[in-house]
C-alpha cells in the first residue's frame, strides 16, 4: 500500500474515534432539544464531569482494590461515572431548568450558561490543578498493518459507542418511556392529554443524555490520558455543532453528525493545519445554522427524538 493511502486511512481511524465521542455527547443535546427546545449549554460540562468522575474512580480503585483485569476496571469506571453524571443531570434539570419551563427560550439559555460556568469552576475548585493526568487503565496494545495502527483503546471506544447507540435507538423505538419521549417531542400538549407524565419524561431524557455524555467523558479521558476542566466547553460546542449538522432533534442525525465532524476534523488536522482545526468546526457550525438550520437529516424534524 502506498504511504499516502496509509496516512489517509490512519487519519480516518483517528477521526472516527473522535467522532464517536462527539456523537455520544451530541445525542444528549439533540434529545434535550427535542423534548424541551433548550440548547443545554451545560451539557459539555456534564461530559467534563464524567471525565473527572472516571479519574476519581481510578483513584478509588487504586486505593481499595489491587490490580484488576482491564475490562473490570473499565466497567467499574463506566458505572461510577454514569451514575454520578445521571444524578448531576437530573439535579441540574430540577434546580435550574424546571422553574423556567414556561419562560422564554433565551431565559433558559442564559441559565444554562450560568450552570456551565458554575460546574466548570466547581470542578476547578474541587480538583484544584488545571490539568490532571489520567493513569493508564487500558493496556497500550495495538494492531499494525504497515504504517496503520489501531489501538485497543480505539477498539474499546468503537465498541462502547456503537453498543450504546444501538441501545438508545432500541430504547427510543420500543420502550414505553422512549415512545413517551417521542410523543412529547412531537406535541407536548397532546402528550400531556394522553396521560404522559411530562416531568418524568423530561427527567429521564436528562438522565439518559447525561449518562451518555459521561461515557464520552470516560472514553475521552482514557484516550488522551489527561483531563482539563476547560475540555467541556470546546467538546460541548463541537458536539453541539455535530447535533446541528446532523439535524437537531434527530437521534440518527446526532450520530451521523458526530462521526462526520470527527472525520472532517481528523482529515483537516492531518492535511490542512491542526492550528486551524477548531475554526473549521466553528465555520461548519455557522454555515449550517445560516444556510440549512434543519441539518442533514432535518426531514424527520417533526419526530424530534
Amino acid at each position: 500500500m502506498n504511504a499516502a493511502l496509509e496516512l489517509f486511512i490512519q487519519q480516518l481511524i483517528n477521526g472516527l474515534t473522535l467522532g464517536m465521542v462527539y456523537a455520544l455527547i451530541a445525542l444528549g443535546y439533540t434529545m434535550v432539544y427535542g423534548v424541551i427546545q433548550l440548547i443545554n449549554f451545560a451539557h459539555g460540562e456534564v461530559f467534563m464531569v464524567g471525565a473527572y468522575l472516571a479519574l476519581t474512580a481510578i483513584w478509588i480503585l487504586a486505593a481499595l482494590a489491587g490490580p484488576l483485569p482491564f475490562w473490570v476496571s473499565f466497567a467499574a469506571l463506566l458505572v461510577f461515572s454514569m451514575a454520578g453524571s445521571a444524578l448531576l443531570g437530573a439535579t441540574i434539570e430540577k434546580v435550574a431548568y424546571k422553574p423556567l419551563r414556561n419562560s422564554p427560550r433565551l431565559t433558559a439559555l442564559i441559565t444554562s450558561i450560568g450552570v456551565s460556568f458554575f460546574l466548570q469552576n466547581a470542578v476547578m475548585l474541587i480538583y484544584r490543578s488545571k490539568e490532571q493526568s489520567v493513569p493508564e487503565i487500558i493496556p497500550h496494545v495495538q494492531v499494525s498493518l504497515g504504517r496503520i495502527s489501531f489501538s485497543l483503546i480505539q477498539g474499546v471506544i468503537f465498541l462502547t459507542s456503537i453498543g450504546l447507540m444501538i441501545f438508545l435507538t432500541w430504547f427510543v423505538k420500543n420502550t414505553k418511556l422512549g415512545k413517551a419521549m417521542r410523543a412529547l417531542a412531537e406535541d407536548p400538549e397532546a402528550a400531556c392529554l394522553m396521560g404522559i407524565s411530562v416531568d418524568r419524561v423530561i427527567r429521564v431524557t436528562f438522565i439518559l443524555g447525561s449518562a451518555l455524555a459521561s461515557v464520552a467523558g470516560v472514553l475521552f479521558a482514557l484516550y488522551y490520558g489527561s483531563v482539563n476542566f476547560h475540555d467541556g466547553y470546546l467538546a460541548g460546542l463541537k458536539a453541539f455543532t455535530a447535533a446541528v449538522f446532523g439535524g437537531i432533534g434527530s437521534i440518527p442525525g446526532a450520530m451521523l453528525g458526530g462521526v462526520l465532524l470527527g472525520v472532517f476534523e481528523g482529515l483537516g488536522a492531518g492535511y490542512i493545519s491542526s492550528q486551524w482545526k477548531d475554526v473549521f468546526a466553528f465555520l461548519l457550525l455557522v454555515a449550517v445554522l445560516i444556510s440549512k438550520p434543519s441539518g442533514l437529516l432535518g426531514e424527520n424534524i417533526p419526530e424530534k427524538v
Binding site: 435550574a96 450560568g114 456551565s116 466548570q120 475548585l125
Partner: peptide, 20 residues
C-alpha cells in the same frame, strides 16, 4: 478570587429564576 466565576454562574441562574 477563585470563587469569582462560580459566583457569576450562580448569579445568572438565580437572576433568571427569581428576577428575570
Amino acid at each position: 478570587a477563585d470563587y469569582r466565576m462560580l459566583v457569576f454562574g450562580l448569579i445568572m441562574i438565580l437572576m433568571m429564576i427569581f428576577r428575570p
